[in-house]
Design a protein around this nucleic acid. Sequence first.
DNA 1: AATTAATGTGAAAACGATTGCCTTATTGTT
DNA 2: AACAATAAGGCAATCGTTTTCACATTAATT
Lengths: 367, 367
Amino acid sequence: MKTIALLFKLNIIFTTTISAKHTTTNWISMKRNRISIKDISKALGLSNTTISFILNGKAEEMRISAQVAARVLAYVKEVGYTPNYLARGLVTGKTNTIGFIVENIGNPFFSQIASLIEEQAYNNGYKIIYSSTNGEKAKALELIRMFRDRGVDGYILCPTEGLEEEITQLREENRPVVLFDRYLPAVDSHYIGISNEDAMYNACKHLADKGKKHIALITTDSQQTQMLSRLEGYRKLLKERNLTAYILSVPYEERRERLQLDLENFLENNGIIDGICFATNYLAVGGLEVLRRNQIKIPSHIAVVAFDDNEALRLFQPGITAVAQPLEDMAKLIIDRLLIDLKLGKVTDKTFHKELPARLIVRESTG
Amino acid sequence: MKTIALLFKLNIIFTTTISAKHTTTNWISMKRNRISIKDISKALGLSNTTISFILNGKAEEMRISAQVAARVLAYVKEVGYTPNYLARGLVTGKTNTIGFIVENIGNPFFSQIASLIEEQAYNNGYKIIYSSTNGEKAKALELIRMFRDRGVDGYILCPTEGLEEEITQLREENRPVVLFDRYLPAVDSHYIGISNEDAMYNACKHLADKGKKHIALITTDSQQTQMLSRLEGYRKLLKERNLTAYILSVPYEERRERLQLDLENFLENNGIIDGICFATNYLAVGGLEVLRRNQIKIPSHIAVVAFDDNEALRLFQPGITAVAQPLEDMAKLIIDRLLIDLKLGKVTDKTFHKELPARLIVRESTG
DNA sequence: AATTAATGTGAAAACGATTGCCTTATTGTT
DNA sequence: AACAATAAGGCAATCGTTTTCACATTAATT
């Protein structure tokens, strides 16, 4: 027992610090106040070259004397110089920026992996520029081009369908690309994902092993590879157990609006269903709401398995068994792979295509 | 069922362009293949100036003849020229980029608002660079500086404590800043948030109205304004109803690890508690797990209200009443405000300080 | 016819780095 | 003493734009 209560001082701590600086310039221009290499070289009676070499750790290599180097570094620290990345990028063609394109950053799956990728990128000196496609090809294309125009060094993409040409193009231009979550069969590119077929197979198997005979798959009609593989996994299990398939395929474009109604109809028309696999997280969340509204008992009446795990599922009562993707591992592989190409300065010829195993988190204790 | 397969012509479109320049270098360098203004002016027998003016819509203003303009635009479209933003940024000092700093993009509250902000920014021609502070001042400072070095035009910050000087500095340099979720009392800056005190007051009131007499607040020891205000709201209601305060203040730094144990102890030592307000979303999620593990009946034994609404709470059974922040409105206000300063080219003297009302979503039907 | 005023363009200087190639000591060799 | 080799740094071009002037036509004015 500790904590509790406490006095909360409404802190006025900082009032002193605020006033002092920038008294002379009543200028209204911004940016002009930043110190540049030229300022440094002038102040120290050296050349830009020398400063630049020292700043880039090439002092020895370029035979700059240790004293000069020390003097420069000291001065740089003193005046708090930091390089202008735009200028540097202009000449080097590198920006230390990675373009990160997801379907929707508001989706927990993407935001979590984003969080992990961001951290790793950051640790390697890279910043992230991100944007969401909402699954629209047009937006995705626009984003890729915009990123290119801004000189991002590499791309992490959750591709929409129809991006084949553009991605091929990127690779031809020697711009490192890593796809994740899904890939494009017609394009040879690095890809990190999970073994969706196995994962879904296991998920369904779990239901079957619990004695469920009429297992449905709730999915979308999108042709994204991860969805197709999950479908395959479902099919495989059904075939193995000689079960009938019940598939509800919600139109991808209207997945938000239609899910609820479509699912209700589907269940009504297929009263025999006693198990459901949701092929992705938003379907699971929306679907569980429907089940609840219709007072369907889980898992006795219908048992449920969801793809992707997250807070919502973790807290759901009764426990929902879920397929958890190894987010940390994926993030690490993605970044590592991208960094290899980035360091190399060109796209490697052999593409890396890795599918990690997913983990089935069994939650319902009661059968 | 359609698609799949297709033939993707491995386009050789660019091979011509690539060879022409830098023939000497049999370099494998990238980027050199992009067409520049200079290429255009050369090809069309015009000057860079003319091209630039036309491209920037200043053709009329600069009295470029309509025919020339048309010719240039046609050619530009034909060769698919797009400007190099780095070069442009170097001279204009603008990058059309907004730095977006949140506590953790993996947190649904932040990722959802990020999604909304991104969309609005995008519609206004701005891109987002984002990063997470994890609540650490040092990381926040580093990020702000990194963003500055990259020449972002404006900042959207969810500030940690201790950022007063840096933010003041930004404003003095005329760099637009908008804070959200919380603000820094010692700094005069734009801020968009919700009326936390009222929101928490109403949340607690809801519990009190349901007859709860021993209402606890689960919060952190952070001095962030939004947390302090929520505490005030809680205090206000208790005072009004003449109730005793039960406050569990989890150390902010160890909020993940300690919450569960601290909460269990807290409840054990205060068996009389019959209502709980969670001051923020991760506390609610973690806390509800504890309540469930301890088989505490909600709301009959302990009634619960959570701050922030999200999928997890929406799905939780029994329904958990929650304080929902008006994310869309906040996002819109944030962007609008930032755009005003951005268009203006300088920081407006009067700061905008807006607290939107939050909505209490009552969920438990049974009392 | 000469001057002025529009019109349309272009030259060149930024912006702030990076980098290939020089220049000048200084030291070492024979 | 003459010359090469090395050490320590500097010059200036370059990246791709934007933007300030200046210049060259042509049309209009007096």
